[in-house]
Write a protein that binds this DNA or RNA. Structure first.
Length: 185
DNA sequence: CGGATTTGACCCGCGC
DNA sequence: GCGCGGGTCAAATCCG
């Protein structure tokens, strides 16, 4: 029990809310570096916080890692299923933020395809793995619900979208759009 | 029928 | 060296 969720958010009291518009590292724009952001007075208790999970020096221009292109990704017969942990050497940007919602699926305007689900040790709820269905877009997303607050959903984005939002249905998407504008500056 | 989801298996890195 | 935890793949299944 207990289970202290990762230091995420913590947000040290909700009084930290500022009216400034910090750059939001959404997967749409390329990240500059580890930026600190704070929810600037969003709907009450809607947006809990956002924090860079893994500071990454933005995607490398080219170099050895060219996951930007839609590589064929040839399946080598040597079998490389699972076990693909870029731990300690994550080149892709990864950001996570918490939201308070009773639904796990937050429609941010992109098309996601679920490709896995695993039970987390410290969490009572399973973690879902999603991948952007856009061709050539390798952005991944993880959705996890906190055991302590089942009303809190932690969404982690990994990668940067290289295409515009396809649809817009939820107001959440609207919020994200605003974030993009802020960072676009 | 096609696409998305589900679910078990597989694999890898890390800690002990 | 072994076990655990986490991440991904792929076949099967479900739904529109």
């Amino acid at each position: 029990m207990e289970t202290c969720p990762p230091m995420f958010l913590s947000s040290s009291s909700s009084s930290s809310y500022s009216h400034q518009s910090p750059p939001l590292p959404l997967p749409l724009m390329q990240p500059t570096s580890n930026m600190v952001m704070s929810s600037h007075g969003l709907q009450s208790g809607c947006f809990l916080g956002l924090m860079p999970s893994l500071e990454a020096p933005a995607q490398l221009p080219s170099s050895s890692n060219d996951n930007n292109n839609d590589d064929e990704e040839v399946k080598i017969p040597g079998r490389r299923k699972g076990g693909n942990k870029p731990k300690g050497n994550a080149r892709k940007s990864r950001y996570a933020f918490q939201t308070r919602s009773h639904v796990d699926i937050l429609d941010d305007g992109y098309r996601w395809r679920k490709y896995g689900q695993k039970a987390v040790k410290n969490n009572k709820f399973p973690r879902s793995y999603y991948r952007c269905t856009f061709q050539g877009c390798n952005v991944k997303k993880q959705v996890q619900r906190l055991t302590r607050d089942e009303g809190v959903v932690v969404t982690s984005y990994e990668g940067v979208h290289s295409h515009p939002i396809e649809k817009s249905t939820d107001n959440f998407e609207h919020i994200l759009s605003q974030f993009q504008i802020y960072t676009s500056i």
